[in-house]
């Protein structure tokens, strides 16, 4: 049941990304190209998604617990630290270079395009590298 529900929710996300233009790097990069071939469409994607989630979360979180799980698992940290800001800044640089973000690229994989496979391979390599560095740092800190 959890698997079927997750698949269908992923499908809604994938259809949304596909029709919004977020899976299309040309459109994404044009949104950020204010002084060139500017295409403001992505502001409508973000606006539609954030407003829908803002309203929907009010109702979803009113329940004592989620439908198929024992409890809500929400991020609780509120502090701004260096990894958050530097990591996000780094993410933006990569997004500006390639034009894909993770949520845009995963559905784009379904078009079977080689470029998406290449991006995803590099993305996974980046995630694995960063996770390894984080683990090493954590064990070094634990040892001292």
């Amino acid at each position: 049941m959890r698997i079927l529900a997750s698949y269908l929710i992923g499908l809604v996300f994938g259809v949304g990304i596909s029709i919004s233009g977020m899976a299309n790097p040309a459109k994404v990069l044009n949104f950020f190209d204010l002084f060139g071939t500017w295409d403001p469409s992505l502001a409508f994607v973000m606006g539609g998604a954030v407003v829908t989630a803002f309203i929907g979360y009010r109702y979803a979180l009113k329940r004592p617990k989620p439908i198929l799980e024992g409890r809500f698992q929400l991020p609780t940290r509120r502090d701004l630290d260096r990894p958050l800001i530097l990591g996000s800044a780094t993410f933006g640089v990569g997004w500006g270079i390639a034009g894909f973000c993770p949520g845009g690229a995963i559905p784009a994989l379904g078009t079977g395009r080689t470029e998406v496979v290449l991006f995803m391979a590099a993305l996974l390599a980046g995630i694995l590298t960063a996770k390894t560095l984080q683990r090493r740092r954590a064990s070094r800190l634990a040892a001292t």
Binding site: R2, A5, S6, I9, G10, V12, F13, V15, G16, I17, S18, I19, S20, G21, M22, P40, S41, L42, F44, V45, M46, G47, G48, A49, V50, V51, T52, A53, G56, Y57, Y59, A60, L61, R63, K65, P66, I67, L68, E69, R71, F72, Q73, L74, P75, G103
Partner: peptide
């Protein structure tokens, strides 16, 4: 604008459903 807005609404809807069903962001 219309296609992107409707795509955005679906993305938001998926986020709401995942919260309501699985309790996750």
């Amino acid at each position: 604008p219309l296609q992107s807005l409707s795509g955005g609404v679906l993305i938001g809807l998926a986020a709401v459903l995942l919260m309501a069903v699985m309790g996750r962001v």
